[in-house]
Structures are given as C-alpha cells and as structure tokens.
C-alpha cells in the first residue's frame, strides 16, 4: 500500500497504460496490487514477530536497565545489573561453564550431524528419505522424555550400571556417568543432533557431483576434495547447524538441572531462578542479555574465521 500512497501519479499512469480488466479493480493500479500482495504475504508474519518476540525483548531490555524496590520494578535508569553480571565471580564462572557446555554439546552434535548428513548424501543415497524421516521424528519426540531416558540409562540403578553389576564387572555403581558436565554435554547433544542434521544436509545437497568430480579430475585426493571443495561449499550449512545447536544449548535450563550436577550447571538455570524465585527481573534480564551478547560474539567469530579458513 505504501507504494500507492507514495507515488500515486506513477501508479495511476502505469495502471492506465496496462488497461485494467473488469471494472471493480480499476482504482488499484498494478503497482498498488503488487504492494498489497507483498503486504499480505509478509505482513502477518512481521506483525507476529514484532508483537510476540521484539516487544517482549524490548520490555526486558528496559527492565535490565531499571531497578527492583520492594518487589516492584521501578524505572530508575542504572547499569548495576550488567556490572554485577560481568564482575561477580560466580556469574563469570557460570557464564564460562555455560560456554564450555554449549560449545562441547554444539561441536559434538554438529560433528555427528555432519558425519550423518555426509553419509546420507554420498554413501546411502538410496536411504536418504527414510533416514531423514527418522531424524524428523526424533526431533519431535518429547524433550523431557528423552532427558529422563538418559537418567534411566546412566543412573545409579540405570541400565548401564545394572548390566555392569550383573556381569560382575563392577560392584559399586559408576557415579561419574551422570550429574556432571560431560553428562550435560552428551544429553544436550542427543537432543540437538536432529536439529543440526537438517541444515547441514540441505547444504550438502548443494554440493554437486560434478564439482566433486572436477576436484578429483584436477588432482585432489579424497581429503583434498573434502577440504577444498565439499567443506567450503557446505560451510554455510555447517555453520548454521552449529550456531543453532550452540544457541539452543546455551539457553537450556532443563538438562543442566536434571543431569548436570554441580559442575554441569548453566546460566539458564540461574536466570530462571532469578526471575521465578527472586523476582529480580532487572538482574535476570541483564544476565540473559549478557549471555545472548557473548553467544552472538562467539558465533560471529566462528563465522568469520570459518569463512576465512574454508575457501
């Protein structure tokens, strides 16, 4: 619509020249109709995102700059919450721990997802559809169910420990299987792999057989072909699947609670507590924004470096 309003003369002229069809449409020129179609296409989605995503973000950003007094948020502008998030030792350790866990989980899931997608694309072409379908199903299987499944698998009286004890290999349950950073990484990766497979698979579809054959023809062995052609061409997808996994892992607050244990806790858990138990919205919001900023910085660096290395 804006086009019609901004350039009524031009639109009318164009509409006139084209000779509009049946009468009713006469008042809206071709340009106007195009603008209307565009508006109808992207309008609802834009409105949805603006209302349900951007608006709350803006509100929380404002909160992070305000203060809590007697369990009430008051609009007193200050940076205390950010100062605390960045200088307080416990928060810094928490953030660092979060990066380590999210980094480990995202690398693990992106790596396995790449291996899976690569096999699917180049070795198991026949099975692409059923296997991809299985991945999608895995993606929609219950999140909590899977976390608890891991506890059933790895817990003191879980399947692994019972089996070891039954076989007489151990007398005590192996307690390092659960409630630590490693467990959090493995369980998070399990949840993220299906998510990471799809973008990397899509990117590998863009690597054409002819390009791979050309690389072989021009002197590359299998490794050379991989590093010089396959990986650079699939890099956008690899990066996207890793970044998706990293962001999802960095924001998780369920897995660390259920299987993370003492050194497997993450900032998400603390942010939830700050909101729900302390009602300290400014501090919670500041922690969330700090985490987001740190995560995006890391992602940006990876994007830049990866783009330079894989060329």
């Amino acid at each position: 619509m804006s086009v019609t309003e901004a350039r009524p003369g031009a639109t009318a002229a164009r509409g006139g020249r084209r000779g509009q069809g049946p009468g009713g449409r006469r008042r809206l020129g071709a340009g106007g109709r195009r603008a209307l179609a565009l508006g109808l296409q992207v309008g609802p989605a834009t409105a949805f995102v603006a209302f349900f995503l951007l608006a709350p973000l803006v509100v929380f950003f404002l909160y992070s700059l305000w203060r809590v007094r007697d369990y009430e948020i008051v609009a007193e502008w200050n940076l205390d919450a950010y100062k605390q998030a960045l200088t307080d030792d416990s928060y810094r350790r928490l953030l660092w721990n979060t990066i380590k866990i999210a980094g480990g989980a995202s690398l693990l899931s992106a790596g396995l997802a790449f291996a899976f997608a690569h096999t699917l694309r180049f070795k198991l072409r026949r099975w692409q559809e059923p296997l991809l379908f299985a991945v999608v199903i895995a993606m929609f299987s219950g999140y909590l169910v899977r976390v608890y499944a891991w506890r059933t698998l790895l817990g003191d009286s879980g399947i692994v420990n019972s089996a070891l004890r039954g076989l007489g290999i151990t007398s005590e349950p192996l307690s390092f299987l659960l409630f630590n950073r490693g467990a959090a990484i493995v369980v998070l990766a399990n949840f993220l792999i299906p998510l990471a497979v799809l973008p990397v698979y899509a990117a590998l579809q863009n690597v054409r057989d002819a390009e791979i054959e050309a690389a072989r023809d021009l002197g590359c062995g299998s490794w050379g072909t991989f590093w010089r052609v396959t990986a650079p061409l699939a890099w956008p997808g690899i990066f996207f699947s890793w970044a998706l996994a990293f962001l999802a892992a960095a924001g998780d607050y369920v897995v660390p609670q259920l299987v993370g244990g003492a050194n497997g806790t993450m900032v998400g858990v603390v942010i939830t507590d700050t909101f729900q138990t302390d009602y300290n919205f400014p501090r919670g919001a500041a922690l969330a924004f700090t985490t987001l900023l740190v995560s995006l910085t890391i992602i940006g660096i990876v994007r830049f470096v990866g783009g330079k290395v894989l060329r």
Binding site: A210, E211, E213, A215, P232, L233
Partner: peptide, 13 residues
C-alpha cells in the same frame, strides 16, 4: 587427463 564437464562444474565459491 583432464575433463571439461557438460555443466562446466566450476567451483562456485
């Protein structure tokens, strides 16, 4: 031996 492919197969990146 080198090949000129029907689709050229230039490296797009």
């Amino acid at each position: 031996v080198n090949t000129v492919f029907q689709s050229y197969a230039l490296f797009p990146h």
